[in-house]
Design a protein around this nucleic acid. Sequence first.
DNA 1: TTTACCATAAACACGC
DNA 2: GGCGTGTTTATGGTAA
Length: 425
Amino acid sequence: MGPIIGMSPDKKAETPGVQEERAGLRGVCGAGTLPEAESAASPRATSLDRAGGAEDEELTNLNWLHENLLQNFTLGGPEAHPSGSPLFDIEGDSAAPHAFSSLSSASSSSTSPSSSSMLGGRGGEKDSLKAKPPFSFSLLIYMAIEQSPSKSLPVKDIYGWILEHFPYFSSAPTGWKNSVRHNLSLNKCFRKVERSLGKANGKGSLWCVDPEYRPNLIQALKKQHFPTAHAFCTPPASPPSASSPPRHLFLQDQNCSLKESDIDAATAMMLLNSAPGQQADPCDPDSPMDLSRPDSVLVSSDPKQDHNYSSAPLQRCSSRSSSSSLSSLDEGGRVLPQARRAGSEGFHSDEDSDLGEERGRQARPAPRHPAGPGGPPGKKVRREAKQEVDEELKEAAGSLLHLAGIRTCLELSKHGAKSRKLSRK
DNA sequence: TTTACCATAAACACGC
DNA sequence: GGCGTGTTTATGGTAA
């Protein structure tokens, strides 16, 4: 998987060697400002109009991604999107139809001079309309569905949305529709819902995003632009931990610096605090995002995988880094146990067991200090071992929390440990 | 080298 | 029968 997940800068449909300036989503969204509820009603008209040359574009210039997604999605600050909704309303209950239009307005109105120069101006924007989107089909489908007023779309409208926003597909071989259908069927993020009786005329079913998997998709989106963010990383002045030095993102357009790990937490908090008007702004110290709140700690990962393409980057990343990531969240943003959909659908994966093992290792470090063969150790030995275990536990928890940029929680846990010791005394 | 993700193609079934 | 939709399988590229 590449830094930009999903559609690899292609291959068959794209002519190699042709390099252009790229504006990507910015241009696409800028041109495809979506009137409310228009989402898939008139998809094709604009696509061919906008299709200029048949040039293809490379996907190496990711400034647009940094600019749009970091500002509008991950950071999600009110100033980044005046409408108050992130790129996609995570809970899907507020202003979702405006999500993309707000994105485009935000990106068109608030783009910094530097970003416009980076993107090469309008020419690059126009060219980008023909760019193959650097999103996987699952993400494209997700965007389309999330953008629809009813949060559900028939396959035809999904085609339409994709065509409208990514005119690349208007000239692409028709196989992409097959891929869309393939994704819808195979990807557990998407659910088929029967059309209501009143609308039983059209073929096929409606497709919606499984709420259980929405965080995964969001995370996939986020993970997709992290590599871009890394390009803007600078080493921390004084890493608090040698084992996990937090990298900093310097967001040029917002004069804002935050740790990458904070973005994880920020996104998690967006999930938790996604009630209208409660968008947390990690750049704002006064923002409602309170990482010191113990209940805001999300130190787990969603083990769903299998054919759940969009969640896969999350899985791999979280399982490998053991950093804080998103848990399964229910509609209310509560952390769910790692429950699976009824029927399981083959959700068990190796990752799953790995995570379980990892959790087990963290929760049960005792086997590292097994009782000697000579029988139970003395009280003193046990106490020392227990203290050691406690320290290791605290260290482990501290590392995890630190990875999540939640140092205050570590303090809390330390305080808790202290208080427990005191109470024990 | 292995593994997993992803895109793509193709075949098939079903319903309108 | 044609078409759109939905499912499934296979294959190859890519990145970790």
